[in-house]
Amino acid sequence: MGQSPSFDSVNVGDAPPPLVCGPVTRTDFVRYAGASHDFNPNHHDEVYAREHGNKSVFGMGMLAGGYCARLLTDWLGDGALRRLRIRFASRFWPGDVLTCTARVTKKTEEVGGGLVECEFTSVNQSGEVIVRGDATAFLPRR
């Protein structure tokens, strides 16, 4: 969190330390429902979720996406992101542990610094991808 690393100090292939979130709980889903206004009952109402063919409530894709966004801002600095795309691959469940990782895929010089492109994923304890995505950040030259 805080300041961005300099554009020159980041290289293609670089990766931040993984961010491990969880085991996630139903309370985490309820807290995110309130914060995000996502009141799809599949995420907080166990009875509804079971009646609709799910083994239990499951987490919001954007909650896993939020964990990944935290990984990126901790790594690349506050306010550095220029673009963030989150693609939802699988669902996650109470008790799952999500591990978020990222990697630099490309660097492009710009005036005063440059753009760093990276890809990221969040996987569960079995290695199944929950969300994946890509992001672009501007880093100053300094």
């Binding site: 979130c21 995110y32 939020g66 935290r70």
Partner: peptide, 13 residues
């Protein structure tokens, strides 16, 4: 703050 709490992000910013 509520949103940052919900994604488990303690960042003071």
């Amino acid at each position: 703050k509520e949103f940052a709490d919900a994604i488990g992000d303690p960042n003071p910013v």
